[in-house]
Design a protein around this nucleic acid. Structure first.
Lengths: 239, 239
DNA sequence: ACCTGAACACCGTTCAAGT
DNA sequence: ACCTGAACACCGTTCAAGT
């Protein structure tokens, strides 16, 4: 047996191991030591494939964006007629499909948001995604500056929304530490705005309308995106 | 001299040291060991003030949001008339002032975005900020659900935009590594969307309209926020 | 080109102990 | 209550060396 020490891994194999770690143990587990260990390598061997950890993460982001690309083209092609015409006024639908595909790609993959926020987002697939958005807004009549800003606003909304959702679910699904009911503060009820003596994290009554925040995350996202698109597409023709 | 070993620091002193570190050495330098060292403490002494690192970061976030609170009330009171009437249709201006205050608070403080993204955002000052946004949207006629989603969309836009800007400036202002001109790839020009062989980070021509992205970050933010608010405020009365 | 082993300078956190 | 010192189980990265 013993397949020999000269494995010569491919980037695809390394990224597969990295995603395996990301999905099973979370973003923090995606360390160069961690994926090296999962591949039966020494940490330093990783540096013959990627110059540093950021390059590894960028490679992962590119792969995520690549999968998204396929998914979005499928989704955009689906509701159109079977003729060759690419859905005349489907510009807004194209943006919605693109944004939704990115979001679903990220929420499917716990910890993937950290990836997108930790990395420059300048690879070929990232640029292709950007190009798709620009195209849709240019088709709608926005000039180059406005289209660039509109595409940026959409990216910001998707990534920001997923980051918020991830922070929320990370807090509620945190199994490592239970709430501590032994609260001993409560003094000074009306502190100034710049007060810093707040140190009991679980002492809040959790407000009025905070229930049902996790289950309608998708509806909340779509509603917000729709409002944003209302504003963005109106900025072309309504003057 | 020698003031004795029983210092008994206040939370304010600890947070001041933490912000000092954040501004001078960046987000990664804000470690419990780091701020302990800056205070002349042993790392373990920090655990008598905060149960863990997240609690420290939450304390910092609260202080940032507290400063923002004061700033936003000033800004909102400024453009109104000097009479006691709080600007009748200034709901949109209030949201703009709040969002702008949060953004400026974050861009002034390099690394502070990491804070907001790493922390649950559930402290008293965070809730007060949320309440202000809800108030403005409720005044505009949105029902509770829509107002909550609108407030969320604004938060998402501000934090997402600052996170993007931070990633951009971190890349351009990165003094530790220069671009490597010795590129040896270039083979396989039309790779599939799921290809993963992209490993030369600097090999891109940096596209068509990518110049002038950093200097108009504020204009881009304000434009996107304005479009979002167009959509959000239109969702109340236009049907 | 790919890989190992030792090392450097870090992390967050816990535990036993001192005052 | 506040603090120290030692320790555990990690990080990213570099360097010298082997094949």
């Amino acid at each position: 047996m013993r397949p020999g020490p000269r494995r010569s891994l491919s980037h695809a194999e390394i990224l597969a191991a990295a995603f395996e770690l990301l999905e099973t143990k979370g973003f923090d587990a995606v360390s160069v030591r961690g994926v090296a260990g999962a591949l039966g390598l020494t940490p330093t061997a990783m540096y013959t494939y990627y110059p540093n950890k950021d390059a590894l993460l960028s490679g992962m982001v590119e792969q995520v964006l690549g999968r998204l690309e396929d998914q979005a083209t499928d989704a955009a092609a689906r509701p159109a007629t079977t003729t060759a015409v690419p859905a005349p006024e489907g510009r807004r639908e194209r943006v919605t499909a693109l944004a939704g595909a990115l979001r679903s790609q990220l929420v499917d993959r716990p910890g993937a948001v950290g990836l997108l926020l930790a990395t420059p987002l300048d690879g070929p697939n990232a640029r292709r995604f950007e190009e798709r958005l620009l195209e849709a807004f240019a088709d709608a009549g926005l000039d180059a500056l406005a289209a660039g800003r509109a595409a940026h606003a959409v990216r910001v909304h998707v990534l920001g929304a997923v980051a918020f959702d991830a922070a929320e679910t990370a807090r509620t699904a945190d199994g490592s530490q239970a709430a501590d009911p032994a609260s001993t503060v409560q003094r000074e009820p009306a502190a100034s705005a710049t007060a810093t003596l707040w140190d009991e994290l679980e002492a809040f009554p959790l407000g009025d309308r905070s229930r049902g925040f996790a289950d309608d995350a998708t509806a909340r996202f779509e509603w917000g995106l729709d409002r944003l698109l209302d504003g963005l597409f109106a900025s072309s023709g309504a003057d």
